[in-house]
């Protein structure tokens, strides 16, 4: 603590979910770090991989079931089309506050110098290949590799 005076130098963000609200949380935090001159890296694992899967990244949804803050009863949230409806409502609000959609957001992160990694174990589990992923993802790495990249003072790790 003494050496860096508590200054945050790098954010290591682990994204394990692909619901839109979680993906946005990770992206806003990564981008916000870069805007403050803080380094940022994102490790996509398990369902979080969908946020960088070329065929899926533009079609992410908000979760309408099991999310009390949505104020939609679980029974109704589970009806066909509810997720798509809630997602389109949310996207309209996002655009109003200048929030980019996922594909554009990934380009912004990439151009801003956010380093992106895919989890090897999850890639194997879902049978994804590196070519299936957004081009800004630098490499497929192990948890050990990720820890190695997180070494140093002023590095913070965040699991989403």
């Amino acid at each position: 603590m003494k050496e860096t005076n508590g200054e945050i130098k790098k954010m290591m963000i682990i994204l394990s979910k692909a619901t839109l609200e979680n993906v946005y949380a990770a992206f806003v935090l990564a981008n916000g770090a870069r805007m403050e001159g803080i380094e940022a890296e994102v490790f996509f694992t398990f369902f979080g991989l969908e946020a960088v899967h070329r065929k899926k990244l533009a079609k992410l949804h908000v979760a309408t079931v099991g999310n009390p803050a949505m104020h939609i009863p679980t029974m109704i949230g589970g009806l066909p089309g509810m997720e798509a409806f809630a997602t389109s409502m949310m996207k309209k609000e996002m655009e109003k506050i200048d929030m980019p959609e996922v594909p554009e957001f990934l380009d912004i992160l990439s151009a801003s110098g956010v380093r992106m990694w895919a989890c090897k174990l999850a890639m194997d589990m879902f049978h994804y290949k590196k070519e299936d992923l957004y081009e800004g993802v630098e490499d497929v790495i192990t948890v050990g590799d990720f820890y190695k990249k997180s070494e140093g003072q002023g590095v913070h790790m965040l699991f989403i």
């Binding site: 001159g37 912004i108 801003s112 110098g113």
Partner: peptide, 29 residues
């Protein structure tokens, strides 16, 4: 016009990558 990184990228004046190169630490600030 409120400024944001996204708007800078769409400005046609500079792209985000070059903006970060020209003002390396916290470019917008």
């Amino acid at each position: 016009v409120p400024l944001s990184i996204r708007k800078i990228g769409k400005s046609g004046v500079v792209d985000i990558k070059e903006f970060y190169q020209l003002f390396p630490k916290a470019p917008l600030k």
